[in-house]
């Protein structure tokens, strides 16, 4: 199995609330996050969302799709979400949010291994592409989020100038 550890940091000139709202509404990601083909809820979580399970399907530059489920394991409103991935990728993901003078820092840590046989086989050759693919998807997410925040009703007056 091939292991990957990614950390992505977005500096966004907006307060944390609308960002948190956008990120936690995972079923709406396909509407603004290029590369996310589908997010389907398989199980509801509790009041905070803990225990919810979603199936994600991703497709970016490379000619294949990736599919896995995420179970939300930990939620601290406006600060942190953690989840557990199973399927073609297996591991953990963690979103952390912190407000700064300029807006909000969003950090995503993604520690996964690939379970698909072909992905493991070609890892020696293709690892840099998988990494690149992840970076592309995250960059699309960043751009999509900025666009969403700029157009969402009410977001403009909330945005930090």
């Amino acid at each position: 199995m091939a292991d990957y550890a990614f950390t992505t940091i977005w500096q966004i000139a907006a307060p944390v609330t609308p960002i948190w709202t956008a990120i936690t509404a995972v079923e709406r990601w396909p509407q603004w996050w290029r590369g996310v083909e589908a997010v389907i809820r398989l199980r509801d979580g509790d009041r905070r969302g803990v225990g919810a399970i979603h199936r994600y399907t991703w497709k970016s530059k490379l000619p294949y799709r990736l599919s896995f489920t995420m179970e939300t394991t930990h939620v601290e409103p406006l600060q942190r979400i953690e989840g557990h991935a199973r399927g073609e990728l297996q591991g953990t993901g963690r979103w952390t949010f912190s407000e700064t003078a300029q807006g909000t820092t969003v950090r995503y840590d993604w520690h996964v291994s690939t379970t698909k046989a072909w992905m493991n086989l070609v890892a020696p050759l293709a690892r840099p592409f998988f990494v690149w693919n992840h970076d592309v998807v995250m960059a699309w997410g960043h751009d999509g989020l900025i666009r969403l925040l700029a157009t969402a009703p009410g977001a403009r007056d909330q945005a930090v100038a």
């Binding site: 000619p63 072909w118 086989l121 070609v122 050759l125 293709a126 592409f129």
Partner: peptide
């Protein structure tokens, strides 16, 4: 160019190379 990166092609390239 990205058609050279399909799963089947990656495997063949790895084997072939």
């Amino acid at each position: 160019p990205l058609s050279l990166m399909s799963p089947a092609m990656l495997l063949r390239v790895l084997r072939g190379a």
